[in-house]
Simulated scan of single mutants.
Amino acid sequence: MRIDGQIAVVTGGGQGIGRAICRALAANGARVMVSDLDPAAAARVAAEIGGAAQVCDVTDPDQIAALVKATEDQLGPVDIWISNAGFARGEPGGAASASDAHWQASWDVHVMAHLRAARLLIPGMQARGHGALVNVASAAGLLCQIGDAAYSATKHAAVSLAQSLAITHGDKGIHVAVVCPLFVATPLLGYDDDAPENTPNDRVILPADVAQALIDGLEQDRFLILPHPEAGAYFQRRAADTDRWIKGMSALRRTVDNAVGDADDLTAIHRHI
């Protein structure tokens, strides 16, 4: 699909990958609604790119509905919805250790927020014969992120939901995509959002790289967008021999444990992989 002239919404647009996506969309001619929990961050990005800003807690269905309406009122019907808001907190002591509240928040942010937006947007997109629903998931949704089982499980669910939406609505003019990067230099992993270039290895890419991969993927009508191409090879290896994959990931976890003493500290994990 073309980007120029489209109206886009980006959740979690005030920093990190979301901010980079907002910039890339605007640079390619889209009119952008920047949404974030932080009103000042959303306003700064909107001012920079000539867009609009709206506070939204994506765990609240009413606020999602308000975001859709604000976009329609200020910019027009939504052509591209990008669910980028997300979080990862690690876990205190292994895959079953995080609280129910942690799991529920992961579910609400990574899965239900996108579903609730899709429910509101699909009728209008189908009537107009075009639209895009994009979820910035993670390679954790294809593989497995050691150190936060709730993150991995809900990112897997996000990818599965996107597949269902694509199967159901793809032939009605609605393009569905998931973006699945590995490690990205963002505040989520302890990087300064305004100076993320000092990365520990070449597998950590910049938010702008993810944004450009998203733009390219949309223009090429791809479902699976991989800012790290190697994630596709890992995904195939996992599918080809899952038992071997699990043994390998268990070995990786032991390596990280030995190196940093805590494989549930996500910032420490990514610096030793």
Rank of each mutant, 00 (worst) to 15 (best):
P123L: 12
G124M: 04
G124N: 00
G124S: 11
M125H: 03
M125L: 06
M125A: 04
Q126M: 15
Q126I: 13
Q126F: 04
A127L: 14
H130M: 02
G131H: 08
A132N: 03
L133H: 03
N135Q: 05
V136H: 03
A137P: 11
S138W: 00
S138Y: 02
S138R: 04
S138M: 10
A139Y: 04
A140N: 08
A140M: 10
G141I: 08
L142S: 07
L143I: 14
C144Y: 12
C144K: 00
Q145N: 14
Q145D: 04
I146F: 09
G147T: 09
G147R: 07
G147P: 00
G147Y: 01
D148A: 14
A149G: 11
A149N: 14
A149K: 01
A150K: 07
A150T: 12
A150E: 06
Y151R: 07
S152A: 15
A153H: 01
T154R: 06
T154C: 14
K155E: 02
K155D: 02
K155Y: 06
H156R: 07
A158T: 08
A158C: 11
A158I: 10
V159G: 02
S160N: 05
S160C: 11
L161E: 01
L161K: 05
L161D: 02
L161I: 12
Q163D: 12
Q163T: 08
S164Y: 12
S164V: 10
L165H: 13
L165I: 06
A166V: 00
A166M: 10
H169L: 02
H169M: 13
G170D: 09
G173Q: 04
G173P: 13
G173N: 11
I174D: 13
I174K: 10
V176A: 06
A177Q: 05
V178F: 03
V179M: 01
V179P: 00
F183N: 02
V184P: 07
T186R: 07
T186M: 09
P187V: 01
P187T: 04
P187E: 07
L189Q: 14
G190A: 03
Y191T: 08
Y191N: 06
D192K: 09
D192F: 12
D192G: 08
D193H: 10
D193Y: 10
D193F: 06
A195D: 15
A195M: 08
E197T: 14
E197F: 06
E197L: 01
T199G: 10
P200N: 11
P200W: 10
P200L: 11
D202A: 15
R203F: 13
V204S: 05
V204I: 15
I205Q: 07
I205V: 15
I205P: 06
I205H: 04
I205C: 06
L206S: 07
L206P: 05
A208M: 00
A208L: 05
A208C: 07
D209A: 15
D209F: 08
A211N: 03
A211H: 04
A211I: 01
A211V: 05
Q212C: 02
A213K: 01
A213M: 00
A213G: 08
L214A: 08
I215H: 05
I215N: 01
D216G: 04
D216W: 00
G217V: 10
G217R: 01
E219Q: 15
E219S: 05
